[in-house]
Every structure is written in C-alpha cells, then in structure tokens.
Amino acid sequence: MKRLAARRTRNLTILIVAVFAFLGCSALATIALRDTARLSGWLLLTLIIFLAAYNLRKKLPFLPLGSSAAWLQFHIYTGFFTAVAFGIHIAWRIPRGPFEIVLAALYLTVFASGVVGLFLSRSLARRLTTRGDEVMFERIPVYRRQLQHEVETQVLAFLTASDSSAVAQFYADRLEPFFSRTRHFWQHLAQSNRPCVALLNEISSYDRYLNADEREAMQRLAKQVRKKDDLDYQFALQATLKYWLFGHVPLTYALLAFAVFHLLLVSAFSGGGR
C-alpha cells in the first residue's frame, strides 16, 4: 500500500469536491441576490483563524489536539481552499481602497509563502540527504571554524617546513575568503556546484607551478574545499527550510490583525443591515 500517495489522492479529491460545492453555492446565492461578500468574508476569516491556530497547536504539544501531521494536512488543503474563498470574496477583482489592497496583498503573500514553503519542505529535505554528512544547523558555524583552523594550521606547517610560499600564497589569495564564511548560498539552493568546481579547477591548474610536495599539499586542500562546500550546502538548504517560516508566520499575524480591522470597518459602515 502506498499510504502517502493514497492520502494525497484522497485529500485532493475532497478539496476539489469542496471547491466545486462552494462555487456552486456562491453562484446560487448570487442568483438569490444574497450578500455573498459577507458570507464568503466570514468563511474566509474563520478559515484563516483556523490556519493560524496551527501555530498555537505547535506550542501545545502536551494537549491531545491531534497529531501535527494531521493538522498540517488539513492546513495545506484548507489553505488551498481559502484561495477560492478569497477570489469569490473580492469577486476576482483588485480591491479598491488602499487598506483593502494592503489586506489582499497580505493574504496573497501568506498564501504564496505557504505554497513556496510546502515546495521547499518537500524538495530540500530530500536533497539534504544526498550530500555531505548530516549536521545540526546550530553546529555548522562550529564545524566551519574547525575546518578553517585545520586548513590554516596545515598551510602554516607547510610554510615553515618548506622554503616555498606558493601554497600559503594561494590559500591567502583564493581560499581564505572561501573558508572564512559561508559561501555560495544561492548557487547551492539552485543545486549548482559551479563555484566549487571552478575553485577545484583553479587548484588543479595551479599544479604546473608547484613541486611534488606542494602538489600533495594542494590535493589535501582540495579535499577540504569539498568538505567546506558540503557544509555550505547543508547550511544553505537548512537555513532556507528554517527561515521561510519567518515570513509565513509573522505575516499571518499581520493578516489576522488587518482582517479583524477590516471586519470592524465593514460592520461599522454597513450599519448592521443587509
């Protein structure tokens, strides 16, 4: 039994049925000259509150509120559903007032960040297992510093043991900037290892100026460059997996605040009647 695939099919089916049912109902309501904006507005707000409640659920792991995985499934499909509710609510047009425009933009950003986040969660996790050792995110800077220290001690030892400064010079010019901080964030995210390949090429083409000992020292450096590149890769992917939520969650609260204010405004101006 392919459990995850079966779950996806089931949830997608439910979503599609719900969307069509909702579209049908709102068409009927429009024909009956009902205030569909009010109905879809309330629905949208309720759903958004529910989506935002996932954040609270995560903070209360000791309460029997259902598994986080079940919540996330519900969150994702309900999140998609809100897009339709949102479309109906604004009648598929750009809102008029500046406040409404900000509110709509907020919703769209939260929605878009959710979709992007889902894509990242599913794709980056898998990519992380394919390269480099599994490292804890918080430890990456420590490992990077250790590696840099190792490399520098090696280069210095080589410098004092031989009378040539070629390796040390190469390190200072080309490798020091690479080892001293995290590099090539975006390239790693885009799964491009061109920068690393370029650096390794540079190391091997430098061979022609070196003697046998120096070549060997450079070979060791090449290995460490690969190690550092793996660390950078882990950092880029893990950081992205962590930090996308720093957009999704605060914007959620801004959206909630704006939505409630919006509700107060429309209630005040509609005078409570239909």
């Binding site: 995560k58 792991p61 000791f62 980056l124 996790a125 992380l128 297992t129 995110f137 997996l241 962590k242």
Partner: peptide
C-alpha cells in the same frame, strides 16, 4: 530524512513534556 525538514519540533515537544529537558538527540 527525505521528509524531515530538520525543524526540531520533535525535540521541542520532548522538552515541553519533560520539564524543559529533551530526552533524546535528533
């Protein structure tokens, strides 16, 4: 690990249910 996003929600939940002392290492 193909599905784990390294979010550490598991470790935090463990800490929250054990008086702030996580009882395992991820």
């Amino acid at each position: 690990m193909d599905r784990c996003t390294r979010c550490d929600d598991c470790v935090r939940a463990c800490a929250a249910t054990h008086d702030n002392n996580p009882r395992f290492l991820r």
